[in-house]
Design a protein around this nucleic acid. Structure first.
Lengths: 118, 118, 118, 118
DNA sequence: GTGGTCTAGACCACT
DNA sequence: GTGGTCTAGACCACA
């Protein structure tokens, strides 16, 4: 699956989010290996070093661990942990701002729920 | 009022959003002058050039106009125009992504909107 | 001052240690800017990106902060903080191992500390 | 006995240090055979090739010799030799650095000797 | 095979 | 001026 890049955020951040999503959705399950840096790099047509940076973010989050010479593996329990982390971040950091803006713009609940189909 | 900066977005964008908000809320009403670049710069402790860039965004949006020798003035009708613009941008660009993320995290949009009541 | 590199550790780690040392010794004092990435890079004859990685470690440690467009600045109180961190790490992680090895080799810690006097 | 790995040093080096220690402490005495590569590999859950590399370091140090068809044996006098080698390396290479860092961190002899009990 | 590091050089955003 | 990002390609250590 090819990622559709936006140019506001660095590629490595978008790649991180993409991988995080695969883990949360258990497309890559706990205990499994991520695709190798080289494979991701060639599939997504980006530089291997950029892939490494993305994966490093997952390592910093304790979501993925290196097994030397073997590859990067999803830690047991990571899916739930990651989901909880992301949820926490969203609720504490982002949602309050979003909520404030919704109010500021005077948007109604109906308008927001309308285009239900995505 | 001192802006609380975040690290992710450029200062001039945050400044723009701050000024836009003042206009939407009619803290600075139509026909009134914005504070001078110098005043904003010293109050918010940023570079005057950065302030200029923020104001330029408002000029580009037809929200503010320069009256030479006098300063920058909020155009008549700007509050409503700006609000409509921001609303449009929010609904078409941001909200779909936000909804997708909320779903991914297993949260309910309805619940969120209800819990953090208007 | 030119760093003497060893080839066991990555350059960016050695650079980090070098900068950390300058801060602990207050050669670069609190509130001051680090030399620019470009300057360090050309002085030490390494790639700017390598310098960035080193400085990023200091940012992660809350020792240094970015002021956008201006450079990287030593946070107030960083010298003491950093010293305390390094001291803590040394005592808890490294020193026990070192002592164990000294004992294993049949050497005396007391003697070593005394012989190489302060 | 299961080795507790650290992430900083290569596994084969850690394995080498572990075996060296067994020899210095004469847990494996002079003239005795090391456990087989296969046994070490399965006990420590590492790749046999990695074990081989560790043992090769001991061979390079003249601490262990291969007796074809029989296995790897600790050479007579190896315990003392090895101890002397390690001591030499420690004093010339490592201790000066450690000493310098202790001074830099302003650690006192009392602090260093305090947690005597390991 | 795996990931980690580094360089050279380019381009961008920000102040 | 400042730092951040990315690429292409090379080399290394590890298992």
């Amino acid at each position: 699956m090819k990622i559709i890049w936006n140019d506001r955020e660095p590629i490595y951040v978008q790649l991180y989010q993409y991988l995080a999503r695969l883990i949360v959705e258990q497309v890559i399950d706990e205990g499994e290996a991520l695709p190798s840096v080289r494979d991701i790099a060639s599939e997504q047509r980006v530089n291997p070093i950029t892939v490494s940076r993305a994966i490093q973010l997952l390592v910093d989050d304790n979501i993925v661990e290196k097994r030397r010479g073997l590859g990067m593996f999803v830690i047991e329990g990571a899916s739930a942990t990651l989901k909880a982390q992301l949820r926490q971040n969203f609720l504490s950091d982002e949602w309050p701002n979003i909520r404030r803006r919704i109010d500021l713009l005077g948007l109604s609940v109906e308008q927001l729920l309308k285009d239900t189909d995505l």
